[in-house]
């Protein structure tokens, strides 16, 4: 493609606006229309506006569709766009359940188009560096990983659409924990067993879980543990990757709200001879990041795939299907209480 990619964005809430800005910064996309059911979400934009996504897809000549709607609407829009011959970039989660994801997979396979999902965390600086560090072999092989991803909650938390089971399909695990789960998959590969506890421990007014605890094991005996929480009462992102010769600790995440703290990667090597003079206090190396380029890198990757410059490596339908299957296993193995 030697011209700009004609693109529409369906869903102009917070994520739609983030994607809009990233598309503009990239320069390789021409946003020909935007669509949202709410007028207020369309205010202030110069592009052609639609309230009905089907009318939008029928009325505009385009190449690609960016889907940023509630989870419940993602599968139908994605499938419709693919059937019309458009490439699609969709926000996560890939639907509300595995059945949704399988539906999109079938539509993709018969379309010959590109479908990429927004597993955005892979593009954060600390994750890019951690992946390079682990893959470089400097720290040996991964033994285990521990991830905590938690939210502080809000005054209106119980009435948010994310906690409406019909719209979202799940609670904090499907909304936020899915990112950590994708990272576990990214670093460790596939898991062969899952143990979990899923419950609503504090937000009694919601139909979905506010906490999910899971332990996974790979065929190689590597263990991963995940705690996805809507009761952290503080925004927190923390991922430790323990290896045979050292450890990587990721702490904080640069987001648009800057509320998850400075994004840092600290690593240290095993030092049994206490070269620093203190056993248990090996020399630490810390990389810290003050800017978030993840949205730009992710959109660039989408553009590179559309123009044939690079193959799709992240956010594939297989990545999407894998994490959705894991989430269903976590729900099936661990759900208790009244959920």
């Amino acid at each position: 493609m030697d011209r700009k990619v004609k693109t529409v964005i369906i869903g102009m809430g917070r994520m739609g606006r983030l994607r809009y800005d990233a598309l503009k910064r990239h320069g390789g996309f021409e946003i020909v229309a935007i669509c949202d059911t709410r007028d207020s979400n369309l205010d202030g934009f110069a592009e052609r506006k639609f309230h009905d996504w089907q009318e939008c897809l029928e009325s505009v000549e385009l190449d690609a569709v960016i889907v940023c709607t509630y989870n419940a609407f993602i599968p139908e829009i994605v499938c419709s766009a693919l059937k019309r011959g458009y490439h699609v970039f969709s926000e996560k989660p890939p639907g509300r359940n595995v059945a949704d994801t399988l539906t999109m997979k079938a539509a993709l396979e018969s379309s010959g188009r590109i479908l990429k999902f927004g597993f955005n965390h892979r593009y954060h600086n600390s994750i890019i560096e951690a992946k390079a560090l682990v893959d470089s072999g400097l720290l040996g092989d991964i033994i285990c990983a521990r991830g905590v991803y938690g939210k502080a909650g809000t005054v209106n938390f119980e009435s948010e659409w994310r906690n409406d089971a019909e719209l979202s399909g799940g609670g904090i695990l499907l909304d936020q924990g899915i990112h950590m789960l994708d990272l576990m998959h990214y670093f460790l590969g596939e898991f062969s067993s899952v143990k979990s506890v899923v419950d609503t421990l504090a937000w009694s007014g919601i139909q979905v879980e506010d906490n999910a605890f899971a332990i996974f094991e790979t065929d190689r005996g590597q263990i991963a543990s995940l705690h996805s929480s809507a009761t952290q009462w503080h925004h927190r992102f923390n991922l430790d990757i323990v290896c045979t010769n050292g450890c990587v600790v990721l702490d904080g995440l640069i987001t648009s709200t800057r509320s998850y703290g400075e994004e840092r990667l600290t690593y240290y090597r095993k030092d049994l001879n206490a070269k620093t003079g203190k056993l248990g206090r090996p020399s630490e190396h810390t990389l810290c990041f003050t800017e978030d380029f993840s949205w730009d890198i992710e959109i660039k990757e989408f553009h590179d795939v559309l123009t044939g410059a690079k193959p799709l490596r992240n956010g594939t339908i297989d990545d999407a299907l894998y994490v959705m299957q894991m989430i269903e296993q976590i729900y099936a193995a661990g759900r208790r209480g009244g959920n």
């Binding site: 620093t276 003079g277 630490e284 190396h285």
Partner: peptide, 15 residues
């Protein structure tokens, strides 16, 4: 821009 720092808590006995 990447900022990076190292931290080594050296014992006083270190050379």
């Amino acid at each position: 821009m990447l900022k990076a720092y190292d931290y080594i808590e050296f014992n006083n006995n270190n050379v």
